[in-house]
């Protein structure tokens, strides 16, 4: 047994090294003086300065953040309503259809989602004259749609775990379904809504393929700009950008973990 667990530990350790080595190297070489990304030439922060002087990157970052903020919000609304309906409502006609449509985007290859949405937008443009060109609006619709699937996964698992007796108690006390939802269900599942929102926000910020298909000439997102830079080879300012993103994400995760452990302690005290 001891031998077996040592073997497991070594494999797992190698696995974690495999997961983290590239991320660590991105961070280290973002502070490299040399333009060669893989040869150390002394400490420097010049690539950060260069990054913040690049108007194309800054503009694309702003476009991406706006898209991610709106898409995450729409996705959480659709994901919440979809999950609630699927889990709390008894049979209804489109239940099977909804359950299929809300999970399928999770595994659908991105090229197919991107192409199919673009062709829809072009066809709609021809028939009803909307959405009137492609750009931020079409990217937001695309991201909200696949984001809703991810949000629904997170929210559904919370709804399944939730204690039904609280909702029943509110109903017995005469609360209307709408009030039960807003006063009882929503506060209980709020943490899941938040993590679903954050998940869709990061996915939207990260998406290259779908955005490339449905975007128009006006709107370039951050991944689109990064991809065209990276295609030409490694460049240290991309490392600097990666380090900033990794820093923000790590801070967010640490804050969330602290929050969870504090609320757990709080719960234990009670």
């Amino acid at each position: 047994m001891g031998q077996q667990s040592r073997f497991l530990k070594i494999v797992a350790l190698l696995g974690f090294v495999f997961l983290y080595a590239p991320i660590v190297s991105l961070v280290i070489f973002s502070f490299n003086e040399s333009k060669l990304v893989t040869v150390w030439g002394g400490f420097s922060t010049k690539w950060y300065a260069e990054l913040f002087r690049d108007p194309q990157i800054l503009e694309a970052a702003w476009v991406s953040i706006k898209i991610a903020l709106i898409s995450a919000t729409i996705a959480v609304v659709i994901g919440t309503v979809g999950s609630f309906v699927l889990i709390r409502f008894k049979k209804f006609r489109s239940k099977g259809l909804l359950s299929m449509m809300i999970t399928a985007p999770l595994v659908m290859p991105e090229v197919i989602i991107g192409l199919s949405l673009l062709l829809l937008f072009v066809a709609m443009q021809g028939v009803i004259g909307w959405p009137g060109g492609r750009g931020m609006m079409t990217i937001i619709i695309a991201h909200s749609t696949f984001g809703a699937a991810y949000a629904a996964v997170v929210i559904q698992s919370r709804l399944v775990d939730m204690d039904l007796s609280i909702e029943e108690a509110a109903q017995d006390l005469g609360a209307k379904p709408v009030r039960v939802f807003f006063d009882v269900t929503l506060p209980v599942i709020a943490p899941a809504l938040l993590s679903g929102w954050l998940l869709v926000f990061t996915l939207s910020l990260d998406d290259l393929v779908i955005a490339s298909f449905v975007s128009g000439p006006g709107a370039s997102t951050l991944p689109m700009v990064v991809f065209s830079k990276v295609r030409l080879g490694v460049s240290p300012d991309v490392n600097a950008l990666a380090t900033i993103i990794i820093g923000i994400v790590s801070l967010g995760i640490i804050a969330a973990a602290l929050q969870i452990s504090r609320s757990k302690k709080h719960g234990a005290e009670r």
Binding site: P22, I23, T202, L208, P223, V226, F227, V230, V238, I245
Partner: peptide, 15 residues
């Protein structure tokens, strides 16, 4: 790692 950019993690492997 899933939360940090997929594109940038693939890029890291080029280096």
């Amino acid at each position: 790692p899933f939360w940090t950019s997929f594109l940038l993690r693939v890029y890291a492997w080029i280096g």
